[in-house]
Design a protein around this nucleic acid. Sequence first.
DNA 1: CAGATTAGGTTTCCGATAGGAACCGGCAGG
DNA 2: CCTGCCGGTTCCTATCGGAAACCTAATCTG
Lengths: 122, 122
Amino acid sequence: MSGFGPGDPFLADCPARLAVELIADKWTVVVLAGLSRGPVRHGELIESIGGISRKVLTQTLRRLEAHGLVHRHAYAEVPPRVEYELTPLGATLTEPIRALTEWAKANGEAVLAALDAGERAL
Amino acid sequence: MSGFGPGDPFLADCPARLAVELIADKWTVVVLAGLSRGPVRHGELIESIGGISRKVLTQTLRRLEAHGLVHRHAYAEVPPRVEYELTPLGATLTEPIRALTEWAKANGEAVLAALDAGERAL
DNA sequence: CAGATTAGGTTTCCGATAGGAACCGGCAGG
DNA sequence: CCTGCCGGTTCCTATCGGAAACCTAATCTG
C-alpha cells in the first residue's frame, strides 16, 4: 500500500518538489510530449496540440528553456522560423511522461465515467 | 528519438488529454503522492505537504473525489474527522507518479543548476 | 457556568496567472 | 500597394491560488 520509499520524497522542501511544480501545469506535459519526437516548430506545436494559445505556448517553452529542458533555435529568416528541441536533460523526462500517457490512455474513460456518475448523483 | 507510439496519444482531443489535465495542476500530483500510503486525514496532508492552503487542499480533494480517484470518509464526530483514501482507480496512478517522483529526485538538482546558469547569463 | 480548544470547511479579499483577440515586423508574391 | 506569412507581444478580462478570519458544536479548563 505504500507507494513510495520511506520518507516520502516530495512531501517536503526539496529539489524534487520544485521539479514537479515545474512540469505540473496545464500545458507543460502536453508540450513536452509534442517535443518528444524531435525538433518541432512553434506553429506545428500550436496545430498538433490544439487549444493552446500562442502566448501560453511561448511562455511554456521559454520556461522549459530556462530550466534547461528545451533548446530554442531561431533561424534568421523571413518569415521567421523557430524550432524547439528537447535537450538531453529534457529527453530524460520522456520516460515518466510516457508512463503518465499510458495511464491516461488506459484510465481516461474510467475517470470520465466516474465523473458522469458523480454528477448524476447530485 | 520518438518517445511515444505512432499517432501521438494525447496531442489531440481524447480522454487521455482530459485525464492529463485533471492531474496536471500545481498540487494534484503532490496530494496524490501524500495519499499513496493509505488513508490520511485532512490535517495530516496539510502538515506533510507543507505550503498548501486548506481551501486549495479541499478543492483538490473534492475534484479528485468527483473524478473517482479518491474516497472521502467523514466521521460524525466533534471535532470533525475526515479521512481520504485512494480508490482502486486512484491507486493505479501511483505507478506513473512514482516514475515522475524518481525523475524529480534524479534530475531536480540539474534543473536548478540550469536555471541558475540561465539567470547568470542574462 | 463561561470561555478556550478542536478539525474540517467556507468566506473574503487580493495578487498572479491563463486565455482570447488584436497587433507588430518585414519580406515575398499577387 | 496590399496581403499573407510566423513567431511573438500587448491589452483586457476571467479564473485561480494564497492568507487570514470566521463557522460549527462538543469537550476541556478555570
